[in-house]
Computed example of a mutant assay.
Amino acid sequence: MNRAQLGAALRALRVASGKEAKVVARGALMSPSKLSKIENAKLAAGAADVERILTAIGVSDEVKAEYTEAARASATEATAWRLLKRIGVHKGQQATKALEAQMSTLRLFQPALVPGLLQTPEYIRAVLQRHNLSEDSLSRTINGRLERQAILYDNAKSLRFIITEPVLRWRIVPPQMMAAQLDRIVSLSRLSHVDVHIVPLRIQQHDIANHAFVIRDDRMVTIETVHAEVVVTDPRDVRLYVEKFEGFERVAWSGDHMRGLAESIRDDFLREQETG
C-alpha cells in the first residue's frame, strides 16, 4: 500500500466513523494540518502516526495492526505487491476506490492490459489469477474492482483512457470473452464523460509506450512495475507524465474511428470463435 492509498484509506475510515478531522487530529496528538497532509498524500505517515490516528478514530485492533504494518513496511518495501498480498489484495481495491472518490479527473495510459475500470468480470478474473490468490481473496478482489467501476457513471468525473492497439489483441481470455470485452469498451466510450482513445499500430509513432500509468488531478501519478507500485507527486515529474499522455492523445484515435477499430478486432475474435 503506497502513501496515497494509505492516506485515502485513513480518510475513508475517519469519514465512516463520523468524526470531524479536528477531533481526530486532537486525539492523535497532531495538528489538523498534519492530518490533512497525511490524508491527501502530501506527507508520509509513520507507523506511530497511523496508530494514533486509528486509535482516535476508534477502529478495531485488527484494522489498526494491518494499517500500522503497512506504514511501517512502506519505508523499506515501498509499494511492493508482496506487502499488498499479505494485507489483502481486496483492501488495495478499497483504498483505490477511496482515492478515486476524491479526484475529479483521471487520465490513464495502458499499453499492456485493458484498464481495470473498463474490464469485464471474466477479464478481471483472468488478470488476478496470476497472483495465486485464494478463491475467497480472488472473489473479494473481483467484487472490489467491480464496485470501483461505479465511478464510470458519475458524470461529475472526467475519465480519459488511452489504450494501445496490441492491448485489444492480447489474449487474456478466450476469443468470445475478448469480443465481449471489446464490446464493453465501445459501449463505455459513448458516455459523455468517458473518453477512450486507441493508439493504432498503423500510425507512425514518436514516443515509446514504456509502461502503464495513471494521473489523478495533475497532482499524482501511479506507475505499475513488475514488483511494485510507484507513486510520483513531485510537480515536475507529474508534468512529464502529463506531457507523455497528451503526446499519445494527439496521435490516438477516438470517437467513431476508435470504435470502428475496436469493432473490427472484435469481429476477428467472433469469426475465430465460429470457425474454431
Rank of each mutant, 00 (worst) to 15 (best):
N2P: 01
Q5Y: 06
L6C: 14
G7D: 09
A9M: 15
R11C: 06
V15M: 05
K19Y: 12
K19L: 15
A21V: 14
K22H: 08
V23W: 08
A28K: 00
L29S: 15
M30R: 08
P32N: 10
S33D: 08
K34Y: 13
I38P: 00
E39F: 08
N40L: 04
A45S: 05
G46H: 01
A47M: 03
A47N: 04
D49V: 04
V50Y: 08
E51N: 04
R52N: 13
I53N: 07
L54M: 04
T55Y: 07
S60D: 09
S60W: 06
E62P: 03
V63W: 02
E66F: 02
Y67D: 11
A70T: 11
A70K: 00
A70N: 07
A71G: 06
A75D: 10
A75Y: 15
A80C: 00
W81N: 09
L83N: 10
K85W: 02
G88F: 13
H90A: 14
K91M: 11
G92R: 00
G92M: 00
Q93W: 12
Q94E: 15
A95Q: 14
L99C: 12
E100P: 06
A101C: 01
T105D: 14
F109S: 00
F109W: 02
L118Q: 12
Q119P: 02
I124E: 05
I124P: 04
R125P: 04
A126I: 07
V127T: 11
H131Y: 09
S134D: 13
S134R: 05
E135K: 08
E135A: 15
L138S: 00
S139D: 14
T141N: 03
T141K: 01
R148G: 02
Q149V: 15
A150N: 15
A150E: 15
I151V: 13
L152Y: 03
D154Q: 12
N155E: 12
N155H: 10
A156I: 03
I162R: 13
I162N: 06
I163R: 08
T164H: 01
E165H: 11
E165R: 11
V167K: 08
I172V: 07
I172S: 05
P175K: 14
Q176L: 11
M177N: 08
M177F: 04
R184S: 04
I185P: 06
S187T: 14
S187I: 09
R190P: 07
S192Y: 09
H193I: 05
P200H: 07
L201M: 14
L201D: 13
R202C: 03
I203W: 04
I208D: 02
I208T: 14
I208N: 11
A209D: 02
N210C: 13
N210K: 06
F213K: 00
I215W: 06
D218G: 07
D218L: 02
T222E: 11
I223A: 03
V226L: 10
V226E: 07
H227D: 10
A228S: 13
A228C: 04
V230W: 12
V231S: 02
T233L: 00
P235F: 01
R239L: 13
R239K: 13
Y241H: 09
V242D: 03
F245W: 02
F245D: 09
F245I: 01
R250H: 02
A252K: 07
A252R: 13
A252H: 09
H257N: 12
M258F: 09
M258R: 08
R259F: 10
R259T: 09
A262W: 01
A262D: 00
R266Q: 13
R266K: 10
D267T: 09
L270W: 05
R271K: 15
Q273V: 14
T275V: 10
T275I: 11
